[in-house]
Design a protein around this nucleic acid. Structure first.
Lengths: 276, 276
DNA sequence: TTTGAGTGTTCTGTTATACAGAATTTAATT
DNA sequence: AATTAAATTCTGTATAACAGAACACTCAAA
C-alpha cells in the first residue's frame, strides 16, 4: 500500500504517462540503432503488451517513428521531437540574442563556443557553434552536465547564493570524473570565489581528459547570473594557451550579451560591489 | 482483408499518455510566453486537476519546466526535449537496412562508420554511426566530398567502368588536399585496381592530415556498386592498425548489407569474374 | 487591514482504463 | 515443412485516472 519508491513530490504522477516518457528517454539513449518492442519493454520494466500500447500512442502523435525490417520492427524518436526540441531551445530567450555573439566568440578563439543555463542544479547547453575542423565536440545539447566540473557550471554556481550552492551540492554531490575533478566542497567554494573575482571559470581536464574549457557568466537586469558562455578545446591541438587572455575574451563576449539583455557587465558588478 | 492499417490505430492508444503529448504540443505552439494550468486545461480539453497531474508527471521527467511568477505559474517545454530533438534529428534520412550493420561495424572496429553514395561524381555521406568518445568526426552528412581522396569515393570509383572514371576525373580533377593526395590519373587508376582486387580502399591522410579511412563497396542485385561503407579514425588515437584485418572487417560488413538488399558479396563477384 | 477575484493545489468516489499474461499471428531460418 | 522468435491481439481484473468540489494561496483594490 505505502509503496513510495519514488521521490515524494510526484504524488500526482500518472504511471502510464511516466512510462511513456521513459520510453522516449530510452530511445534517446539507444537512438542510432533503434529498439524493438521487447528491448523497450525490458528497458523500462513493463510487459511487451504494455510497451506496445505505449508505442502505439507515441506513434499516433508523431513522437516515435517505426520501420519494418522484415518480421521485426525498429522504433526510434519521431520528427515531432525535433520540432519541440527546437522550440524548447529557442524558448530560452537568450539563445536568439546570444547566437551571433557565440559565433563571434568561436571566430575570435577558434574554439567551439557553447551557451548553457542551470536546470535543476545541472548545467544544460542550449546552443553551440562548432569550431572548424574535422573533429568536433560530441553533441551534448540539452543533456544535463555536472556543474562542479564544467566551465559553464562553475560560472553559474559562482554567482548564486552560497546556501543554494550547498543545497545543490548535497543533492547532486561532486562525483569524480577525472583525477583533476574537484571533489571536496571546500575546494570548490574556493574555486568559485576565484571564478567570481576574475570573471571567468576554468575547467582544465576536470570533466574529460585532454579537454580544456573556459567560461563566463551572463547577467540579467537584476544582476542575477542566468546563463553562461564557454569555449572548449582539445589541449593537444593547442599547446600554448594563455588562460588570462582567453578568459578575458570569453568574459568580454559574455558581457556583450549581458548588455544586450539590459544586464550589468562583470566590471559594473565589481565596481558597484553589487552583492546585498 | 480490409484491415485498418491506417495510422489511426487508437485501439491501443492510452488516453492519459495521449493527453500528456497534447500538452507538449500545446506548449510547443505557445512556447514564447509560457502557459498556465488553466490555459493548458482549456487547450487540450480536460479539467484543471487533470492538467495539473499531467504537468506534474511531465515536470518530474524534465519534459516541462515551471517557473513561479508570484501566485501564478508559467509552464514551458523542458530541456530534456532539446536533447531528444537533437537525437531525433540525427536519425532522419538514414538508410534503415544499413543502420544496424553500420552500428555493428562501429562496434567491431571502435571507429566512426559511414555510409555514402556517389552523386554527380562526388562521394556523399548519407548516414553515420559515431564511435564513442568526446570528439567526433565533423558532421559531413550530405556534403559533397572529393572521390579521389576518400575511402568511400575510391571504393565507388573502383567498381564503375573505366571510361566513366576518366570522364569524372576530367570534370572534377584531382585537387591536392595533403602531400599524400594522389594527383596523377595513372596512379589513381592503379590504386583503384588494387582496391577492386582486395575489396577495400584506403585513405591514409590523403584528405586530412592525421586521419585514416578504410572503405568497401556495397552491391545491388545487378552487381553494381551503389554505395560504400567506411570507418574513420584519428591515427594519433590508434597507433597500431592492421590494415589487412581492418579492411577485411569493413568488407565483411559491406557484404552483409549487399546480401540484405539482394546483391552479391565481394567473394561472389570475384569468383564469377563479373567485371565486363 | 479587509475583501475579493484570480490563481494553483488537494481531496474523494466512481468508472473507465491501463495492465500482465496468454493466445494468436507474422516473418525469417532451417 | 518445421522451427524459431518476434510482433500483435485478446481478455478479466485491479486500480489508476478522472472531474468536480473544496481548499490554499497571491495580488490588488477598498
Amino acid at each position: 500500500m505505502s509503496d513510495t519508491n519514488q521521490p515524494a513530490n510526484d504524488k500526482y504522477s500518472l504511471r502510464s504517462v511516466g512510462r511513456a516518457l521513459d520510453v522516449l528517454v530510452a530511445l534517446g539513449r539507444d537512438n542510432a540503432k533503434g529498439m524493438t518492442v521487447a528491448e523497450i519493454a525490458e528497458a523500462i520494466g513493463v510487459s511487451k503488451s504494455t510497451a506496445f500500447s505505449l508505442l502505439q500512442t507515441l506513434i499516433a502523435h508523431g513522437f516515435v517513428a517505426d520501420s519494418r525490417i522484415g518480421g521485426s520492427r525498429q522504433y526510434r524518436l519521431g520528427t515531432v521531437l525535433i520540432h519541440l526540441g527546437d522550440q524548447a531551445a529557442s524558448n530560452i530567450a537568450i539563445s536568439q540574442t546570444a547566437m551571433p555573439v557565440l559565433h563571434q566568440l568561436m571566430e575570435a578563439t577558434g574554439m567551439t563556443a557553447r551557451l548553457a543555463i542551470l536546470d535543476e542544479g545541472y548545467a544544460v547547453a542550449i546552443a553551440r557553434v562548432d569550431a572548424p575542423g574535422i573533429f568536433k565536440l560530441a553533441p551534448s545539447l540539452g543533456r544535463r552536465e555536472l556543474p562542479h566540473c564544467s566551465a559553464v557550471g562553475k560560472s553559474l554556481l559562482a554567482h548564486i547564493p552560497q546556501e543554494r550552492v550547498a543545497t545543490l551540492l548535497s543533492r547532486i554531490g561532486l562525483p569524480r570524473r577525472t583525477d583533476r575533478t574537484i571533489t571536496e566542497p571546500a575546494k570548490l567554494i574556493e574555486d568559485l570565489a576565484l571564478t567570481a573575482w576574475r570573471g571567468y571559470s576554468v575547467d582544465d581536464e576536470e570533466d574529460n581528459i585532454g579537454v580544456l574549457c573556459v567560461g563566463a557568466a551572463i547577467y540579467e537586469r537584476g544582476g542575477e547570473a542566468i546563463a553562461a558562455l564557454s569555449v572548449t578545446t582539445l589541449k593537444l591541438e593547442r599547446g600554448d594557451i594563455e588562460l588570462a587572455k582567453l578568459g578575458a575574451t570569453v568574459r568580454a563576449h559574455a558581457d556583450r550579451i549581458s548588455q544586450m539583455i539590459g544586464g550589468p557587465t562583470h566590471a559594473a558588478l565589481n565596481q558597484g560591489g553589487g552583492s546585498r
